[in-house]
Design a protein around this nucleic acid. Sequence first.
DNA 1: ATCATACTTGTTTGCAACAAGCAAGTGACT
DNA 2: AGTCACTTGCTTGTTGCAAACAAGTATGAT
Lengths: 216, 216
Amino acid sequence: MQSSAVSEVERRTQAERTALSDARMLDAAVALICERGSSGTTLKDVGERAGYSRGLASYRFGNKGGLFAFLIRAIGESWLTALRGATRDKVGLAAIEAATDAHYRFVVEGSDAIRAFYILWFESTGPDAELKRVVANIHERRRRDVVAWIEKGIAAGSIDPAVDTLGTAEQFCAAIIGIVYQWLVTPDAAEHLHFLHESLKRQTARALQPPRLTEN
Amino acid sequence: MQSSAVSEVERRTQAERTALSDARMLDAAVALICERGSSGTTLKDVGERAGYSRGLASYRFGNKGGLFAFLIRAIGESWLTALRGATRDKVGLAAIEAATDAHYRFVVEGSDAIRAFYILWFESTGPDAELKRVVANIHERRRRDVVAWIEKGIAAGSIDPAVDTLGTAEQFCAAIIGIVYQWLVTPDAAEHLHFLHESLKRQTARALQPPRLTEN
DNA sequence: ATCATACTTGTTTGCAACAAGCAAGTGACT
DNA sequence: AGTCACTTGCTTGTTGCAAACAAGTATGAT
């Protein structure tokens, strides 16, 4: 509004230009991945759908792997922020339950971006190097968060110290992945997704508060 | 050995020829997928690595999706057979535990084929149509098996009839998927994989034999 | 000998990847 | 403030490669 308010050509700084094209290409890529899958998404289409030339996505991200890594990073970051908000000040089972709820909401609400995110996530199982590293990194961070919650719960006295911390955390993360998988292949079953999250909370609660040992 | 035993060119029936080339291309594809991922695997390389021309894989399977569907079907079938053997005559928790053990062994032993199988499995999360249907089908069959085991366990009196049959089955299948994911991204941790399977058995046992209700 | 089926080779099309050019923003010097 | 050299965002031209299909050759069947 400041410099040439009348001119139709809005003047932007270089940083703003890239930020804008990045954002537009992110949207375009998300839409394309949801529509055609990641292998059906071409760099050409990403650039053009974002309103630029066929070459821009290629130029900016180098190759398909670069684009995908960018997407995972960007969406993953926004997810991480949301998660931190949801679990702030919580420890132990309460934190895990809050995180599970947040995950459910995130999946249901953010739909398209999250779907693309997880499609890429699962794609990273092949030996595709870069993407694999990024995803493994996020996954590891998740696991560490869960471990920390359990340990703080133990310290606070709300969780049995005898609990297998690492094992439970891994089980929990594995279950989340499994749930997401179900959602991806059966996207319509929204209520079903809710059920699986609830069920996971119950199972984790049981794992963290083991029944009093019978003495044989 | 029958017709021209001396001749170096062994005579085969047409059926044998295709069976042989199918098998060789399956091996080649498995190896390539493990080495380079599915997107890095070309039909040309599959044909040539199997000892044929660049065009054979394309001719036989039509397109990449066709090849992948073939792989999933072939490997999935062999897995299903192994599973049926392992759970024969078992019901309830015993069947589920046997199936879990069988899954663990299958993954550890069959390594390369199973890895390729699951890499493709996870890839099928995108909207790639054909592969997706095949995988969803196998997944559904698995789930139904688990439901049947639980129901038979209830009928046999070894499982509490109040148990949420479908929910537990889905939880179980989701956990298997999650475990496999872990293995794919961290293939070296073999003992870890064993732990996750054991842990899943324990959790499922708990879910199926809920602690006697406290009466509040 | 003929026919059918397995397999190969030729050709087209489309994308990825890179290179070279054009355009828009930035900062310094007057 | 104006304009000039430089940097950075973006586009267009080109090459190589794989998918997909068509047309041909060889091998087994009858």
